[in-house]
């Protein structure tokens, strides 16, 4: 009957036209917050370096990150540099003290230290040098009013320390060193919190 079987004989045409477009309201939530917790711990770190180009016998040990000890000999001279990093809480300042923590000096011998001003490397509110003091076994302020700052690390950074002996000939360093009585000075970085 029908040669072309695929011929469409009757088409039921159903075309549904929608009178309006079915776009739903666009999804928009185009902002987001990212919360970041920021911590800056208070720090008070102190260290010293000695100009190694000179043959100086020295030693130091950490009593803590905020305390260092240096063995002083008559030739230590001015080759020591005090470096520190400080972060303070709002409104507070730190300070550094020095005292003889080991060994003893003969009565006619005194040891002074001259604390230079910060040389200006690093950044921040570096402390104010007290000038020169005579060291004793009691801690004395040597740098005060330290805010958040860092001095940089190494020689020629921070505060230069110059040791000045009075009547050093009366002090037999070698003997005291062998007996474990070398003079040691401890620098302590203290927070005023």
């Amino acid at each position: 009957m029908f040669v072309y079987k695929k011929i469409v004989l009757l088409i039921s045409l159903v075309v549904l036209f929608f009178s309006f477009l079915t776009i739903v309201p666009a999804q928009n939530n185009n902002t987001a917050e990212m919360s970041i917790t920021l911590k800056i711990p208070a720090i008070a770190l102190i260290d010293f370096v000695v100009d190694g180009s000179q043959m100086i016998t020295y030693s130091y040990s950490y009593s803590g990150p905020n305390q260092v000890e240096q063995i002083i000999i008559p030739t230590t001279g001015d080759k020591t540099w005090l470096n520190y990093s400080s972060i303070v809480k709002s409104g507070l300042t730190n300070y550094i003290t020095a005292h003889i923590s080991s060994g003893s000096l003969p009565a006619d011998v005194s040891l002074n230290v001259l604390i230079g001003a910060d040389v200006g490397v690093g950044a921040g509110l570096k402390g104010t040098s007290i000038g020169q003091i005579t060291l004793s076994t009691f801690p004395q302020n040597i740098i005060t009013n330290i805010g958040s700052c860092h001095t940089g690390r190494g020689i020629n950074k921070g505060h230069q320390l110059t040791y000045i002996w009075e009547n050093p000939d009366s002090y037999n360093y070698s003997l005291n060193y062998e007996e474990g009585n070398a003079i040691a000075v401890t620098y302590t970085f203290t927070s005023t919190e």
């Binding site: 919360s35 970041i36 990150p65 470096n83 950044a123």
Partner: peptide
């Protein structure tokens, strides 16, 4: 949470 900390362990270094 994102938690950042600014510090140093070396005297003289900046945080």
């Amino acid at each position: 949470s994102i938690s950042l900390e600014l510090t140093t362990t070396e005297a003289g270094a900046q945080i």
